[in-house]
Write a protein that binds this DNA or RNA. Structure first.
Length: 822
DNA sequence: GACCTGCTGCGGTTTG
């Protein structure tokens, strides 16, 4: 069958379905059938699965003209999804293509949800088309004879590539692909990605920089312009609208008509506790919604979440309060309206959420933005622009993640073993390890065989043997077993399960929250009021309570920072406040009185200006700086500046920071003129000063915990045996200290610092923003008291507390105490 | 003078 004939089949199929073939699908089939690799830039709900299942099956037909009589069994294509929950839908589209084209191909899913028995069965006879996760793919690479499984695999599709690109799961994917390129001789690699800023780089990471695959590849853009309408909720009485805060409850009544006027509404909150509070408050103020609204976040029991998802689909719910747990996942056609409560911190996240509504081709997406404090209205205005200009963030790929590489090498060593030369070539073709030196490679190999220099006398770190023919192989079954348990790069927090005494799981909660509770205390979780009874076997036993309570479960998640794009948009909106009123957005207009007050007491900076405010209060001498660069950069810049000032004359500061700026507070006045004269914002010796200024070691220590687990140095325990937090924490800490004292050139130890600077403190952005400040005029204003801009910062006691090592130790002690009790 | 903080995701024998 030639290509044209195949093409006709496909086209007819589309006509029969009464679907209009989108040009991008034809384009994809064409490129695929020509043997090209590619990256398909298409949003969810655009028929992207058909765009690839089709050519995959057509290609099989092409290679087996007699396919109806003689079906050739064996794995032909692998579809990678980062979310197990998406597998079913992907399977359905595959099955439809397979049956409609009248082949006998089989479709299967392999993930953590697949039973052990089914997995074993599956390995004996692989389905033709397999849907799986990055982790399960690695587990396949960890089994003997994996090369035979993948020998005739012709295609691998990485779905939602933008989601995993900037994560260690992405690195894991790069490594798997580097192996499969060799094992599967006729492999086509395709990625599917939503629009991101660095689309070209996304392709490079997927296929390998300077690789043959990249040369023989295409980028296909679906160009489906979705109409998105953003509506900001602007309080009628701005005068009483708070300057700070994050819950946004004072605007609760504004969303009631929105919920009433729409079939189904999703309310996105930024944190799980915020989600709990909003759910509770809506019901409290509007009991008529009882049974019609629900809640969804990552700590709620899975069954409940699935129930909620289905209820959305069946249109039995009016509204769901949720966190980003509903960002991705099953498409909810009935969702008409989306509300974002509080700043989404990034444009992509906002668009993603907007796209959850109006999920039908040609339908408009509507998203309401509910600000939680005054300055967030500037963000609202910025988001309006962002949507118009189609701005989106980059996803920055990881570089040199030695921990993931060590895990991967161990994976290969427990299956068939590997020859270093062959694997080195493959690995150094990936984006992540393109700069991997021969010397570091040797270090890693040595680490596998000997443990590191300082761990040589401990046998548990000697995992891999070198065979006579030079093959690296794990021969210890215990090592192999434990490694399989621990494949993956997601290191979760240790949580306790919350359940009723007579059974019935409600969800998970952090130990630190429970540690604050006493027997009989009532707290809100998963929308219920629960009475705390006891902790037993890592479980929190509770019973329902009618008592009122103000204790709402909270979790210590990672903190979101304003993205670089959002920051820039925000600054631009701020500058626009100086323009004529007609040119301003309604959000900026609504802030007029705040801007006026800010101008009265200080200034609103213009593009060429950098604002510093100083004033004195009961608490001491305040110096507030406004780079508008997001909290991470401010944390770094604040400590950097504090350190540099203290070099001029001894002085101690406490630091506070938020997304808009940072504050140095001291009991002595700062000689600001001296600060300005000494050019303290310079990028010279940046890294060095940063190291000295903040507790980089403490931050790195926290990063190291993940690295130690991913690289396999610390074992997280057997399934269902309960994880001993104490051990986990202390083991990785112990290793960290050993390396710090005896082996500072250890690559994993160093990686902890690299990750701290690049990912936590965003050194690159810090540098850029310092350079920007260098070109601006410094506007130093000596104020009487806190200005509207300064107010949120100086009252932010929470961010002022810098994490100290004592805190961590306290935490471990508490944990140990709990473990001892049981 | 305004203030209830901190997301998501996966995996859990193999081999004879």
């Amino acid at each position: 069958m030639n290509r044209q004939e195949l093409f006709d089949i496909a086209e007819n199929w589309f006509i029969e379905q009464n679907w209009k073939p989108f040009p991008f699908q034809k384009e994809t089939w064409k490129a695929f059938l020509q043997g090209k690799h590619g990256l398909l830039n298409a949003p969810t709900g655009s028929g992207k699965t058909y765009a690839l299942w089709f050519p995959i099956v057509l290609n099989y037909i092409k290679q087996n003209p007699d396919y109806k009589n003689k079906h050739k069994k064996g794995l032909k294509a692998v579809w990678i999804t980062p979310l197990r929950a998406l597998s079913q839908e992907i399977r359905q589209s595959a099955e439809r293509v397979v049956t409609d084209l009248d082949t006998q191909m089989t479709v299967g899913i392999r993930s953590g949800d697949t039973s052990t028995k089914a997995r074993a069965q599956q390995k004996k006879q692989m389905p033709d088309l397999l849907i799986t996760t990055p982790e399960s793919l690695q587990l396949l690479l960890a089994s003997k004879g994996y090369d035979k499984i993948f020998k005739d695999c012709t295609s691998i599709v990485v779905d939602e590539w933008h989601e995993i690109l900037g994560t260690k799961r992405g690195v894991q994917m790069e490594l798997a692909l580097s192996r499969l390129k060799t094992v599967s001789k006729h492999l086509r690699i395709w990625g599917i990605s939503a629009t991101i800023g660095n689309m070209e780089q996304a392709r490079e990471v997927l296929l390998g920089p300077q690789s043959e695959a990249l040369e023989n590849s295409v980028m296909i853009k679906a160009n489906i312009n979705k109409k998105i309408t953003v509506k900001s909720i602007i309080p009628k009485k701005m005068e009483t609208f708070p300057w700070r805060g994050h819950l946004g409850l004072h605007l609760l009544e504004y969303i009631i008509p929105i919920i009433n006027n729409s079939k189904t509404t999703l309310l996105f909150t930024n944190t799980r506790s915020q989600c709990e509070i909003w759910f509770q408050k809506i019901l409290e103020k509007h009991p008529e919604f009882a049974g019609e609204i629900a809640m969804h976040h990552g700590s709620i029991n899975k069954e409940t979440r699935i129930w909620v998802e289905n209820a959305i689909r069946n249109e039995t719910l009016k509204a769901v309060v949720c966190t980003s747990s509903l960002d991705l996942g099953v498409d909810f056609a009935p969702v008409e309206t989306v509300v974002q409560i509080g700043g989404p911190k990034g444009v992509a996240r906002f668009l993603q959420r907007a796209g959850r509504s109006g999920h039908r081709p040609g339908k408009e997406s509507v998203i309401y933005f509910l600000p939680t404090h005054a300055i967030e209205l500037i963000e609202a205005s910025a988001l309006q622009k962002a949507v118009k200009q189609n701005t989106v963030e980059d996803r920055i790929p990881y570089l040199n993640s030695y921990d993931v590489l060590l895990q991967y090498l161990t994976t290969l060593a427990i299956s068939d073993g590997f020859y270093p030369n062959e694997i080195f070539r493959e690995v150094s073709d990936t984006f992540c390890y393109q700069a991997l030196s021969e010397e570091n490679w040797q270090w890693l190999l040595n680490f596998l065989v000997m443990g590191s220099q300082s761990l040589q006398s401990y046998d548990e770190y000697k995992k891999v043997d070198v065979e006579e023919d030079g093959r690296f192989k794990v021969n210890n079954r215990g090592v192999a077993m434990r490694h399989r348990f621990q494949i993956g790069t997601i290191v979760g927090d240790v949580n306790l399960t919350v359940k009723y005494q007579k059974g019935g799981y409600i969800g998970t909660i952090e130990e630190y929250f429970v540690s604050k509770l006493n027997k009989g205390d009532v707290f809100t979780f998963a929308g219920r009021n629960l009475e705390f009874i006891r902790i037993k076997d890592m479980q929190v036993h509770v019973r329902n309570s009618k008592k009122k309570t103000s204790k709402v479960s909270s979790w210590m998640g990672s903190r979101l920072t304003l993205s670089a794009q959002m920051s820039e948009l925000l600054r631009n909106e701020l500058y626009s406040s100086g323009e004529e009123r007609e040119k301003q957005s309604i959000e900026i207009q609504s802030l007029t009185h705040i801007f006026e007050r800010q101008r009265r007491e200080s200034i609103v900076p213009q593009p060429d200006e950098f604002l510093i405010e100083t004033f004195k209060s009961r608490d001491g001498y305040h110096a507030v700086f406004y780079p508008f660069e997001g909290r991470f950069v401010h944390e770094a810049m604040g400590s950097l500046l504090g350190y540099r000032i203290s070099l001029l004359s001894p002085i101690t500061f406490s630091l506070a920071f938020n997304d808009y700026g940072f504050e140095l507070l001291s009991d002595k006045p700062i000689d600001m003129q001296e600060v300005l004269d000494n050019n303290l914002f310079t990028t010279d010796f940046l890294l060095d000063d940063l190291q000295k200024s903040l507790n980089a070691t403490e931050m790195a220590r926290r990063k190291f915990r993940d690295i130690a687990i991913i690289s396999g140095m610390v074992f997280t325990g057997y399934p269902n045996k309960g994880i001993k937090m104490k051990h986990l924490q202390s083991n990785s800490q112990l290793l960290f200290e050993v390396f710090r004292d005896y082996e500072p050139d250890n690559l994993l130890f160093q990686q902890a610092f690299t990750e701290t600077f690049e990912h936590q403190l965003e050194e690159g952005r810090l540098r850029l923003s310092l350079e920007r400040i260098a070109t601006q005029n410094i506007m130093w204003k000596q104020c009487e008291k806190a200005t509207p801009f300064a107010f949120p910062l100086i009252t932010d006691r929470l961010s002022r507390e810098k994490l100290s090592s004592e805190k961590l130790e306290d935490r471990i002690k508490r944990m140990a105490a709990i473990l001892m009790k049981k």
